[in-house]
Amino acid sequence: MHQDLQGRVALVTGAGAGIGRETACQMAARGAVVCVNDLKDEFVAPVVEAIRAGGGQAFGIVQNIASREGIREAIQRAAEHGGGRFDILVNNAAWVRYQAIPDILPETVERMLDVGFRSVIWSLQEAVAVMDPERGGAIVNVASVAALRSAPNSVVYSGIKSGILGITRAAAAELGARRIRVNAVCPSAVPTEGTQRNRNAERDAARIARTPLGRLGTVEDIARAICFLASDEAGFITAQALTVDGGVTLTNI
């Protein structure tokens, strides 16, 4: 067990599965008190139980963060679990649908914006209110390589993830004086429950063939990057977008 996050209090949104779940587990293994957020207790409880079974500290926060009031409640409850302390925020939650331009529906856009974009803005506002101005804190936003290069049927998704990078840079500029670092990770497609519907053996093989490191990424790869950006090892890193993609975005093979 690493101890580079010892005693830190962290909230990971959308932590009931995939990248969020693995991030919560890795942060707990590094000594953080982790607040596991998701929509339903059936998603949250198994993650909390697994962390505690491994000797870590975790609390469940069942909360819909797709509103200003929801994300405020989640962060306030995380600070309460931390005895008034709040150090790390991981904005991981997302609701994703891929649609061709003629098929995009207003309700799809609104829900994707609420969960994946507006909640990030409101979370920044609330984090400023609860993070200690002397100790500071770390915020990591989960974006995507879709913010850097896009495919058909991803207008809304790519637009939101591109916006997350803009939010990350602007927030880093504004919050640096409060010792709050703000960074993003840009994962490529990794196998998770959420990406299963858009994957098949042929697509996976094509992605692997285009990737210099010759494999798909894993949730462990992404979580390690998030933990690094949240730790003191990244203490002079802010406003950055760390691409975790095996080299596929910036190469052409």
Rank of each mutant, 00 (worst) to 15 (best):
A151P: 00
A151R: 11
A151V: 14
A151H: 09
P152A: 09
P152S: 12
N153T: 14
N153W: 13
V155I: 10
V155G: 07
G159E: 03
G159S: 07
S162D: 11
G163N: 03
G163L: 02
G163I: 05
G163Y: 07
I164Q: 05
T168E: 12
T168C: 13
A170S: 15
A170N: 13
A171L: 08
A171Q: 03
A172H: 10
A172G: 09
E174Q: 04
G176Y: 09
A177D: 10
A177S: 14
A177I: 08
R178H: 13
R178P: 08
R179F: 14
I180K: 06
I180H: 09
R181F: 11
V182F: 04
V182I: 13
N183F: 01
V185N: 06
V185F: 10
C186P: 05
S188L: 06
V190L: 12
V190G: 09
P191G: 00
P191C: 01
P191T: 08
T192R: 02
T192P: 06
G194D: 08
Q196C: 09
Q196T: 13
R197D: 12
N198T: 02
N198L: 03
A201D: 14
E202D: 07
D204G: 03
D204I: 01
A206N: 11
A209P: 02
A209V: 05
T211Y: 13
T211V: 03
P212L: 02
P212V: 09
L213F: 14
G214Y: 11
L216N: 06
L216M: 15
T218V: 13
T218C: 02
T218Q: 01
V219N: 07
E220K: 06
D221T: 04
I222H: 02
R224V: 11
C227K: 00
F228M: 04
